[in-house]
Design a protein around this nucleic acid. Structure first.
Lengths: 138, 138
DNA sequence: ATCCCACACTGGACAACGTCCAAGTCAAGC
DNA sequence: GCTTGACTTGGACGTTGTCCAGTGTGGGAT
């Protein structure tokens, strides 16, 4: 993802300090941050960046397909920079930790036509829930 | 689900007019209502019922396992009274319509041990996305 | 190098959704 | 019918996210 900035520039993105900072934050360790966490980390690098800009930038990255929104049952959306390798998520019900996982099989194929109600089905999102080793031990 | 009230009474629930109304609302046509929609319908039957009570009651129904929370990408959680028959959801990206679906296969079995990271995986939630016939035609 | 302006950013108000709490009310067992 | 503790109320508050008018600026044109 180090070439994210290049890809964005290639798509006609105007490169600003704020956008660079947001991209850098997402480019760090592969975690699933909320918008506010992204904002907090961005502020550490560029103190005057505003919440609105972070929200705007995240929204743009999502519509460009560079970042995925993950809707867990938590209150806030999380942003997943690992958009270029399809994957699903495993969430700990205890501490909220999120791991990327790669199930075998293709859930899309598991939905028979009779269960599609005429929909054009284009995407599937699988969320596994359970307890991580720490929370299971507690 | 007409015996919902009985089941709840059996679990030691104190039966109040408010709880009865909320249960009746969920017992109607099988749709996926937001908390505010539940509140609106409840007010129609019992004008003084408060938002807080609806939230409380929904939360209790969820922890009793009588109702499921559905986290779509929309802002508000939706409540699914069809908790006793496992199923997944198909959501229209255009209009937000939600259908219950029953895929073949078992996604839980599709997650190999090597992808479980020591988690105790207990549940899986599958969300299909696409366009309903109406939105696809538009 | 500089100018210019469309696009981006800011900060704060606002909106949607949900939670919390003190005080009042009521279901249900005696 | 009492009593009591669980339930409800209404409103304040918190969190997450959106919007907008005013200001700033990247980067192509000159």
């Amino acid at each position: 993802m180090s070439d994210l900035l290049e890809r964005l520039r290639g798509r006609g993105w105007r490169m600003t300090a704020q956008r660079r900072v947001v991209a850098e934050v997402l480019d760090g360790e592969h975690v699933h941050l909320t918008a506010d966490e992204v904002h907090a980390r961005a502020v550490a690098k560029l103190p005057e960046i505003s919440r609105a800009t972070v929200y705007n930038t995240l929204g743009e990255l999502v519509s460009l397909g560079e970042v995925l929104e993950v809707a867990t049952d938590k209150r806030a959306k999380r942003y997943d920079p690992n958009a270029h390798r399809p994957h699903h998520h495993l969430i700990c019900a205890g501490c909220g930790a999120i791991r990327d996982v790669h199930p075998s099989g293709n859930p899309l194929a598991d939905l028979p036509d009779s269960e599609r109600f005429g929909f054009t089905v284009s995407d599937v999102e699988v969320t596994y829930r359970g307890l991580c080793p720490n929370c299971a031990a507690a």
